[in-house]
Amino acid sequence: MTTPADRLQAVRARIAAAARAAGRDPAEVRLLAVSKTWPAAAVRELVALGQADFGENRAQELTGKAAELADVPLRWHFIGQLQRNKAAAVARLGAVVHSVDRVSLVRALARAGTEQGRPVEVLLQVDLGGPEGELAARGGAAPDDVPALADAVAAEQGLRLRGLMAVAPREGDPGPAFARLAVLAERVRSDHPEAGDISAGMSADLEEAIAAGSTLVRVGTALFGERPLPSPEDESHQSHGSHQPG
């Protein structure tokens, strides 16, 4: 049985090796630990080992876990599909929202950021499609819609545009999909230089994502192990979360 320290060290080593193989500085790539379905105690253990960033994909779970860990120095990220009526609760926690994919959500988060006097940091989720190019139904804006969505975020005083996020298609080589994301990210940066982050790559494909320029990899399984089977109640709420694995 490996320990949390062993798993964290192994993931960090993979990130560093992938960055060096791509001719990049490993310090350019940050690790986001995807803690969804895991108890607060597991998060606390990784924080004690030096991990700072954690991701959740359900607003209710995020707010509950954040309350349990209010004494712990960490940064929350929201990586699931976010309902507008949950936007304010997520924003109050100072969470970085990775899943902005429509103008209505832009407006809801902007209102929350304005009301709290602190801009909400956001990334635009891009639907990279499936193996035949069809939209993947995993959340995300169509690539052609992303530049206009970036303009909408940049126009809001209550928001700060951080960059783009995407999940690779479930089938096939993720490399070409991540390469398309990198091209789109460069286009967005040409208009919005502050949008320098690319959130891409998970336990199974972080090497390919880093090779394409990812600055933030979202890792769950390789850090925490296989997730517990969801309870019947969790299954009933699945439509409110993300389909993204770690």
Rank of each mutant, 00 (worst) to 15 (best):
Arg118Val: 04
Arg75Asn: 09
Ala41Glu: 13
Glu186Cys: 09
Ala110Asn: 00
Lys86Trp: 01
Met202Tyr: 14
His98Cys: 02
Asp191Ala: 15
Val120Arg: 15
Asp145Trp: 03
Gly196Ile: 04
Glu171Ile: 10
Met202Gln: 07
Leu229Lys: 08
Ile15Tyr: 04
Asp173Trp: 13
Glu134Leu: 13
Ile15Thr: 12
Ala209Arg: 00
Ala21Phe: 08
Leu184Glu: 10
Leu184Ile: 12
Ala33Gly: 11
His77Gln: 06
Arg92Trp: 06
Ala33Asp: 07
Ala18Gly: 13
Leu82Thr: 04
Ala200Leu: 02
Leu74Tyr: 05
Ser99Val: 10
Val47Phe: 11
Pro193Thr: 04
Glu156Gly: 02
Gln60Cys: 04
Pro228Met: 03
Asp191Asn: 14
Gly129Ser: 07
Val96Gln: 00
Pro193Met: 01
Arg44Glu: 12
Ala67Lys: 02
Leu229Ser: 08
Ser214Cys: 04
Pro4Ile: 01
Gln9Asn: 10
Ala59Asn: 01
Asp25Ile: 11
Leu223Val: 02
Ala148Tyr: 10
Arg218Thr: 00
Ala179Pro: 07
Asn85Tyr: 03
Val103Ser: 13
Leu109Asp: 03
Ala67Ile: 01
Ala17Gln: 05
Glu171Val: 13
Ala67Val: 06
Arg160Trp: 02
Arg84Ser: 10
Val146Tyr: 08
Arg30Glu: 08
Ser242Val: 02
Glu121Gly: 15
Asn57Cys: 04
Ala33His: 01
Ala168Phe: 00
Glu28Leu: 14
Lys36Asn: 04
Arg111Asn: 02
Leu206Lys: 11
Arg20Met: 08
Met165Arg: 06
Arg170Ile: 10
Gly64Ser: 06
His98Arg: 12
Asp234Gln: 15
Leu93Asp: 09
Ala185Ser: 15
Ala59Lys: 07
Ser231Ile: 01
Glu156Met: 11
Val96Ile: 15
Gly220Met: 05
Ala155Thr: 03
Pro169Arg: 03
Arg118Met: 01
Gly246His: 10
Glu194His: 00
Asp6Pro: 09
Glu233Arg: 13
Pro176Arg: 07
